[in-house]
């Protein structure tokens, strides 16, 4: 019934580029899909691009935080990239600072950060 967010594999990295306004069911599906793909592919890094998201509410915020923790337990580092400044300000006021989530300004820097963390994206 609802669409799924595609999870792309590039080298040893999984790339998730969220391009549409997320329904709660899509958020839950993405969480399941990602952990399964990490195990199936042995990916060492996950990059989630949220630059197209106009809002991140507590539900999506929780998914980002949970996903970072679950991925880490499965041996993959997660970087969230492309958060809009207005979204960041809103999240902090909402009370969600996403402490356990690594972030980078954009996709390029996110991949660079993964490399520095010892996850060679190639």
């Amino acid at each position: 019934m609802s669409d799924r967010v595609p999870v792309l594999k590039i080298g040893r990295v999984l790339l998730v580029s969220i391009q549409q306004d997320l329904e709660d069911q899509m958020v839950m599906d993405l969480q399941d899909d990602l952990s399964r793909r990490i195990v199936d592919t042995g990916a060492k890094g996950v990059v989630i691009d949220i630059s197209a998201l106009e809002i991140v509410d507590s539900f999506v915020g929780r998914m980002l935080a949970d996903n970072a923790s679950v991925s880490r337990l499965l041996g993959a580092e997660t970087i969230v990239v492309g958060m809009r400044p207005a979204v960041a300000m809103t999240l902090v006021e909402l009370g969600l600072s996403l402490k356990g989530v690594r972030t980078a300004l954009n996709l390029e820097r996110g991949l660079k950060l993964l490399r520095r963390l010892g996850t060679d994206p190639a």
Binding site: E54, I55, V56, D57, R84, P85, A86, V87, M89, T90, E93, L94
Partner: peptide
């Protein structure tokens, strides 16, 4: 920013 806060 106001829009984003309201919509959130």
């Amino acid at each position: 920013v106001h829009q984003t806060k309201l919509v959130t």
